[in-house]
Design a binder for these strands. Structure first.
Lengths: 275, 275
DNA sequence: CAAAATACGTAACATAAGATACAGCGCTCC
DNA sequence: GGAGCGCTGTATCTTATGTTACGTATTTTG
């Protein structure tokens, strides 16, 4: 049963020609506002011509554009009256394999942050912001992208941020540059990687401060870490989820940025002027 | 300070003549829907004439009726984008600078999935699973790690999955290997990258099916995409958040894995035996 | 109470919006 | 490779929407 226009669209979007699909995608992207504007505005927003928009609404079963708009308005009216029942995409009972996944992920995040105090986060952020040496980031097979993501941001707001990539021998050799003023951020979740453990141990021996992102069962690297962030990773899927760790990473990026606001702002301006 | 039109109205309603006051009351009664309709509908709803409506909006300081409607729509857009932060009280017990960030991120995810039906996700998963050619993944400055993350998983459950990295010239040359049986997954959020757009266009010209991960404002690449995933990215931070897109990516990885269960299981066993 | 000023609605107008016809193009399928 | 079909955009037309002018009603004020 189809109750909302958004459902109707996602139901038929597969059977639409390219132009109308673009209209549909644009509408869904910020639903339902685009549909309340004029045909001309809608068409330019979607990058198609006006007739395509009209054909699009015709395909949805509406006689004309105003009728389509009225339907959207009615839907909006119903939504605004009962904010609780804002179910655009109703939690498919039992059926869809999507909702459980999303729910589990959201739970993981809440749970992860519940075990993570503001003070801890602030401490870690301070470690990353106030370090007097360099920052190195590295990850495991699936978590290395997280290290990259964090490095991409940190490298903009402060100097000497390096992501360690490639073969083990390559980054192992970089140990020689690391000392007690430096910080090493490691991402390691099950199945924990031997190579990372070896690397962490040696770095620790050299006095490097280690910040570890791991799962709730704690990578053995925790033994050498100054700070440990344990994220929930269990989801109803064949794979573990790194989403919670990702959000922690983003939070830390934000916190470090705030701490470096003064120095960082200038740096960002300088970077802009380089383009 | 006056931030919403509703406030503006209740501020000046005392100094209005009877007819315009009725217009004001009618608008407030089911705000802001009446204001989005035509002048004629508004006037009959309020039981006054059209000119009275126009005088009413003029008194509020708008030059003309469309300008008034645009203002209402903008306001509505702002509301719809951050549902919880407006409707719920933001006084979460955490208090620190962390909670707002987490809350916004969770909102983004809910909102992103609200605009994403199970069917859409299933379609995209099918595109990724049933493709008869190769799968390429690429991302922008900050989103490339997401492409890597997805590639790392997909490459395990099916052959011919490639992440496009390095300089533009390198992956541009790989266009030569791409055809209509292939799938290209692109991550592109603001600020959208010219190079990706060029690449997407050429790939599209060659018949490659494009799956686009973007933000709610839609990268121009949406024009060439077969499937578009619009994630929310706004958070109280100096940076945009890719967390919602990350979760969508994980969800898709899970869905593709499920679809390839039979074929994938054998492949995974084979991989294990290689170690 | 009378006169002026203000408010309101009717009706005509101009403009911008939605709808349609048609031609070009690309795509698919023989 | 060619014929047919379907999709898309340009240009044109029509509708209806917002706007304005003006006359009447109502209220206010001296």
């Amino acid at each position: 049963m189809i109750s909302s226009i958004a459902e109707l669209i996602s139901d038929r979007i597969g059977a639409m020609p390219a132009g109308e699909r673009r209209a549909a995608q644009t509408l869904i992207a910020n639903y339902p506002l685009t549909g309340l504007k004029t045909v001309a505005e809608f068409s330019t927003a979607a990058g198609v011509s006006s007739p395509t928009i009209l054909r699009f609404v015709a395909r949805l079963g509406f006689q004309n554009y105003p009728e389509f708009q009225s339907a959207l308005q009615d839907e909006l009216a119903a939504q605004l009256q009962s904010p609780a029942s804002r179910t655009l995409n109703p939690a498919s009972p039992g059926g869809g394999a999507v909702s459980p996944m999303l729910e589990a992920t959201l739970d993981n995040m809440r749970e992860t942050f519940r075990h993570l105090s503001d003070k801890q986060l602030a401490d870690i952020a301070a470690t990353l912001a106030e370090r007097r040496g360099k920052t190195f980031l590295i990850g495991g097979r699936f978590t290395d992208p997280l290290a990259r993501y964090m490095a991409a941001h940190l490298a903009i707001i402060q100097p000497d941020v390096y992501h360690l990539a490639g073969q083990e021998s390559i980054w192992r050799d970089r140990l020689i540059d690391m000392g007690k003023r430096d910080v090493l951020v490691i991402f390691d979740i099950r199945r924990y990687q031997e190579s990372l453990l070896r690397f962490a141990e040696k770095a620790h021996d050299r006095g490097v401060q280690i910040v570890l992102f791991t799962d709730q069962w704690l990578s053995p690297i925790a033994r050498f870490a100054r700070h440990v962030i344990a994220g929930r990773t269990a989801v109803p899927s064949a794979w573990d989820s790194s989403a919670a760790l990702f959000v922690v990473a983003e939070t830390l990026i934000g916190a470090v940025t705030r701490q470096l606001e003064a120095a960082g702002a200038k740096r960002i301006r300088d970077l802009e002027s380089l383009r």
